[in-house]
Design a protein around this nucleic acid. Structure first.
Lengths: 220, 220
DNA sequence: ATTATTTTTTACCTTTGGCTTATAAAATTG
DNA sequence: CAATTTTATAAGCCAAAGGTAAAAAATAAT
């Protein structure tokens, strides 16, 4: 049974909000995320339940089923592969890719994704540093910490961002904090949690705790 | 005003049936092409008229407007660019591309198409030899004749096929009659119009008039 | 433990898109 | 001008996606 575009988007949101199926997700939160009314969400949950991609017990909560998880991961995989394609092959800026990938992720063709994956050389992470599930839905995630949590003199490599709004990505671009940049915490202000960071052994920059808590680092 | 996917498909069909806006196209033909009932077509024509992509006078006929032509060519352009991508970059066989391109052509993003075009090196023809309109809708078409119409000893190059069903394309693949192949008419049977053809100065093959009338040749 | 509040669900409605059948009207043909 | 064919309209169906208002369940507060 095929999912509609809206259903795929709900399922993706559920998967993300539930933190890959760990915690339970509330109707209200989902409504906020999807920018719909809770009533509409209830309705959608019923439908997703009928299609057996979630197990839905009313007034209680929901759980993604195995097949649901597979579908969600499949959609995420497609989204992220397309993002890699857009950035690496078509030279999109990393803040321009989201909307287009949002459309491309709903193209149905297993062969296409298989070939695209191979063409891109089986990338494991997308341009935002998020892991790309393989065709069986397995995710190779790296342990990562928020930059805001790091201590003075600790070093690492920027591997992902939490906020991927265009505004934030453009800001990062401007200051030179790209994915893959090697960083070192030079100073940390106790008072407001702001940081001084060294990027790639050269550029120094200050950032607020606000910003730093949206940057994920692989420590080294 | 945006067109829906169905509307885009109708418009494309209208454009094709009308031979790029030359002849008028009948409701019945369009119904046959779209595999719908004539009543549904009338309805759709009314809607397309309201959106001003065609000029529709009932019981009389229709004409594609400038903006309609632009949109149709835009869709055709996207379809053919994606076909080039699928064949050249993702190694699709030329009989596997159609359905996927049919989906991809409805992705909305001018930037995407611009970049894709550049990435593919501004191709002028798709894998079936059909011309790709440029971003202004201009088409660089080559004068071409049906192979079935050629005379003994005439030569040329296969540039397109009329029937692009998977079955036909696979047949052509098998006998080695790909787009770009240089051919020469060795013999022609008056009785049934069948031909003997030389391909690339080496392979000889026989084909029925049926087949030959679906192959388009740029004479030389 | 019984209210009060919040969250969730139901029941019902609305819109849009795309299609169908049956009927009517126009155009074309004999 | 009658017969036939082609088109158009009217009415209706269905699915998808959403909304409002009211009911029901769960949770929190006194």
């Amino acid at each position: 049974m095929e999912l509609t575009v809206a259903e795929e988007n709900y399922l993706k949101a559920i998967y993300h909000l539930s933190d890959a199926g760990k915690k339970s997700v509330s109707t209200n939160d989902l409504a906020a995320e999807m920018k719909n009314k809770p009533a509409s969400v209830s309705d959608m949950l019923r439908r997703l339940g009928e299609k057996e991609v979630i197990e839905y017990r009313k007034y209680y909560g929901l759980q993604i089923t195995e097949s649901g998880k597979r579908l969600a991961l499949q959609t995420i995989r497609k989204h992220r592969l397309w993002e890699v394609f857009l950035v690496e092959k078509l030279n999109f800026a990393w803040d321009e890719v989201h909307e287009v990938a949002e459309q491309l992720e709903h193209i149905h063709s297993p062969l296409l994704i298989q070939r695209l994956d191979a063409y891109l050389n089986f990338p494991k992470f997308d341009p935002h540093g998020d892991p790309i599930p393989d065709e069986f839905g397995d995710v190779r995630s790296r342990p990562r910490v928020e930059l805001a949590e790091m201590e003075i003199n600790q070093t690492g490599q920027i591997v992902a961002v939490k906020d991927s709004s265009a505004a934030f990505l453009r800001y990062l671009d401007k200051v030179g904090a790209y994915i893959g940049a090697r960083i070192k915490v030079l100073d940390k202000v106790e008072f407001d949690g702001s940081l001084e960071i060294q990027v790639d052994q050269k550029k120094n920059l200050f950032m607020s705790k606000e910003v730093a808590s949206n940057i994920l680092v692989l420590q080294s």
